[in-house]
């Protein structure tokens, strides 16, 4: 498989693991130095905002403590399309840009008798990923989810 194909596969596999809420399996696709962030440009305040920034260790704390928190359990469904994969000159890493739409399949976040079962568009944005490619295996070094949304309603406790 080419580097580009390996990277693309890894991004789609990560999408499936996140959709299935297999947080630890997703994190096992990430290097120890992994950095995760959710960002958004705000024309309102004219500022490049960071909504969440976390290391791999931070992400482990975050998912480990989920059972202690009161959470909207409406499943999220990500539709990812990899737009570009750009390998580095030495071929050891690659940068990938993907479009992502995140739908929320309503369960308990609003009025479940009325809304449960309905799917709503929750967020749109782009994944900007850096991956390491070694022996035909891609590992995430960083992921930035650059959101277009600044209206986030109830937000989320989950990795996106």
């Amino acid at each position: 498989m080419s580097t580009c194909e390996t990277v693309r596969d890894a991004i789609y596999q990560a999408t499936a693991l996140l959709d299935d809420q297999k947080w630890n399996d997703w994190l096992s696709m990430c290097d120890e130095s992994f950095q995760y962030s959710i960002t958004s440009w705000s024309p309102e305040i004219n500022y490049n905002m960071t909504y969440l920034a976390a290391s791999k260790k931070d992400m482990h704390h975050l998912v480990d403590l989920l059972p202690k928190h009161n959470t909207d359990h409406s499943p999220l469904h990500r539709h990812t399309s990899v737009y570009s994969v750009t390998p580095s000159d030495d071929g050891k890493t690659a940068k990938a840009v993907s479009s992502v739409l995140i739908f929320q399949n309503m369960l308990d976040g609003t009025n479940s008798h009325i809304d449960a079962g309905e799917s709503r568009l929750f967020l749109i944005g782009r994944y900007i990923d850096t991956l390491q490619v070694e022996d035909g295996k891609a590992t995430f070094l960083s992921r930035e989810l650059k959101l277009d949304n600044r209206r986030l309603d109830k937000g989320s406790h989950w990795p996106l």
């Binding site: 309102e44 305040i45 500022y47 905002m49 209206r151 986030l152 937000g155």
Partner: peptide
């Protein structure tokens, strides 16, 4: 201000 978002 470094953060802005809204909820409805």
């Amino acid at each position: 201000v470094f953060h802005y978002h809204k909820a409805i």
